[in-house]
Amino acid sequence: MAPTPHLPTPSTGRLKRAAALGAASATLAARSLTVTDTQKVTLGVIAAYVVIIAILWNVPYVRWSLWPFKMLVIAFHEFGHALAAVLTGGKVKSISLDPNEGGVTHMLGGKAGITLPAGYLGSSLIGALLTFCGFDIVASKVASIVLGVCFLLTLWWARRDWLTIVTVLLAVGLIIACWFIAHAAALRFVVLFIGVMSSLYSVWDICDDLILRKVNSSDASVFAKRYGGSSQCWGVVWSIISLLFMAAGIVAGIAAFPQSWSDQENDSKKFIPTR
């Protein structure tokens, strides 16, 4: 009588499959946490951006070199208010920017508990997403398209404010020009700079207005009057959230985009090629 072949029991098979999946997950996690040479350069660029922005922010006269980007980030801030108002049932009447680095969104309705922090946190979230996309050329192209849609909405809401219109059009011109430089390789660093600038501006703006100078006419002061606490307290909370957004964008970029420079360039040539 022929011997009966040994077959693994269902429980043994499940254990083996679970072990294989666990090993694959561990390998993927280890690979995701490994910083490639290309990502090391990107992280170095981010660090350099932080230092450069910090210096230009505080040195007299040369600080004006950041002014166009500050106005762009303020536009993100106001766009955050406007989008939150629309999503919570409100209506946006207009958006305007001020040459003295201010802005205002006139809106009716909406949920104040969401629209008030949406300016600071919205610009921080946009900054984190742009930082994430700045790790890859194709992702930067996608981000620039999304930014274009946001810019069109901002232009619609700010169609009577010349400064907002000029700021947005200059930003659009810069982004379009970068599409044609080395298969959009330059676009990646512009998107990365705008992302870092947006994230840092949100934190510094919160600290400067609410913690250091204790300005009373701010989003946080209105939020504190309606929902309790102090503007300084909410400033600290929103600053921490903004920094967490930025850190999450960097970590996600490392995990999602391990491709080398050459791989990114080849992928870019296949995604809406410019030359």
Rank of each mutant, 00 (worst) to 15 (best):
S65C: 12
L66N: 07
L66S: 10
L66Q: 11
L66M: 15
L66H: 12
W67T: 15
W67E: 10
W67Q: 13
F69P: 00
F69C: 04
K70V: 02
K70L: 03
K70Y: 12
M71F: 06
M71C: 10
V73M: 11
V73H: 13
I74W: 04
I74S: 00
I74N: 04
A75T: 15
A75P: 15
E78P: 14
E78A: 02
F79N: 01
G80V: 03
H81Y: 01
L83W: 09
A85L: 04
A85F: 03
A85D: 01
V86L: 07
L87H: 08
L87S: 07
T88V: 08
T88S: 12
G89K: 08
G89T: 11
G89Q: 03
G90V: 01
K91L: 10
K91Q: 14
V92E: 05
K93F: 13
K93I: 13
S94W: 01
S94F: 02
I95S: 00
D98H: 13
D98P: 01
D98L: 11
D98F: 13
N100M: 11
N100H: 10
E101S: 07
E101N: 12
E101P: 00
G102C: 05
G102Q: 02
G102K: 06
G103S: 09
G103A: 08
T105W: 06
T105H: 08
H106F: 11
H106Q: 11
M107E: 06
L108M: 06
K111G: 05
K111A: 10
G113S: 14
G113I: 15
I114G: 11
T115Y: 03
T115W: 09
T115R: 06
L116R: 13
P117H: 09
P117I: 07
P117S: 07
P117A: 09
Y120A: 11
L121C: 04
L121V: 03
L121G: 08
L121N: 04
G122T: 08
L125W: 00
L125I: 04
L125Y: 01
I126H: 00
I126G: 03
I126E: 00
G127V: 05
G127H: 02
A128R: 07
L129E: 03
L129W: 04
L130W: 08
L130N: 08
T131E: 15
T131S: 10
G134W: 03
G134C: 11
G134H: 04
F135D: 09
I137S: 01
V138F: 06
K141H: 00
V142Y: 12
A143I: 13
A143L: 09
A143V: 14
S144F: 10
S144W: 07
G148D: 07
G148N: 11
V149T: 02
C150G: 15
C150Y: 03
F151W: 09
L153F: 14
L153A: 14
L153R: 06
L155G: 12
W156V: 14
W157T: 06
W157L: 00
A158S: 15
R159T: 07
R159D: 12
R159I: 05
R160F: 03
R160H: 10
R160C: 02
R160T: 14
D161L: 11
D161H: 14
D161A: 09
W162M: 12
L163G: 02
L163W: 05
T164L: 06
I165R: 08
T167D: 00
L169A: 10
